[in-house]
Design a binder for these strands. Structure first.
Lengths: 134, 134
DNA sequence: CGGCACCTTCCAGCCGACAGGAAGATCACA
DNA sequence: TGTGATCTTCCTGTCGGCTGGAAGGTGCCG
């Protein structure tokens, strides 16, 4: 299978496939006599795996480390599990920060809505966001 | 006030101050006879404003547009409010996506924990994350 | 007058995950 | 045989928000 077909099956672009190869995420494939990359069907699975892992927010570097374990035939999933748990912790933190920001914004918007429009005419201050709101 | 003092007061680096100037976030200041940037105290407020707005997740471009309104002495906060509301919507979406990813990861971790360790010995598959889990 | 901290400009690089495009080879089909 | 789609490599650019460093000028203290 050539790179275009692979890309189509996996739902990515040929650019992406070559990029993944360049960072070691997928192995260098065989080449046809004319130099074209020649892939086996299993690479489709690997690319879909990458896509799924990415969907959970893992970076390509993290996915790479998971795949490396898989490639070396590791007899334990402990590294993978540890990675997942660490990532979950990261996500929790991120969600909290966003929720906090969301609350901050909500407070600002509420203040803005309750403001007398004429109070916005001071060219030196915006009443909606001020440094004192920190 | 010279750039170093300003930076200290605002809690940023001199690099950042010059960068903000380069993207038009703060105006070009007066210069001393020797060419040093010479700031008024009000710039401290402006930088703190930027910091606060950034803390809510606004990009510098967005902050720039808010400040622009402020600079032109806009008599209405409606643009600012609209910006804030749009940003809140963005945040909501982002939070949902992260929560979804968090659930996905949780499911994966749960599966991993319940797996018979020996089932991980197949060198061709990682049971924890598979493309079929999409 | 020496030395050091601070200032100036400008250019380069970093992270992540690609996308765009040039220039040339090759393949498939009519 | 032509032509258009696909392939190759390689280099550059994108977004956002800075950071690092080189090379040189200035300010102040003792």
């Amino acid at each position: 299978m050539k790179i275009g077909e692979l890309a189509d099956l996996a739902g990515v672009t040929t650019k992406t496939v070559r990029y993944y190869e360049s960072i070691g995420l997928i192995a260098e494939p065989e080449r046809t006599q004319s130099g074209y990359r020649d892939y086996g069907v299993e690479v489709v699975e690997r690319l879909r795996f990458v896509r799924d892992a990415q969907a959970t927010g893992l970076t390509l570097a993290e996915i790479s480390s998971v795949l490396e374990l898989k490639d070396t035939g590791s007899t334990s999933c402990s590294h993978t599990v540890a990675l997942l748990e660490r990532h979950m912790t990261d996500l929790d933190e991120q969600i909290l920060r966003l929720q906090q920001a969301r609350e901050d914004l909500s407070a600002l918007a509420g203040r803005a809505a309750s403001l007398d429009p004429s109070s916005c005419t001071d060219p030196n201050r915006c009443q909606v966001i001020t440094s004192s709101s920190a």
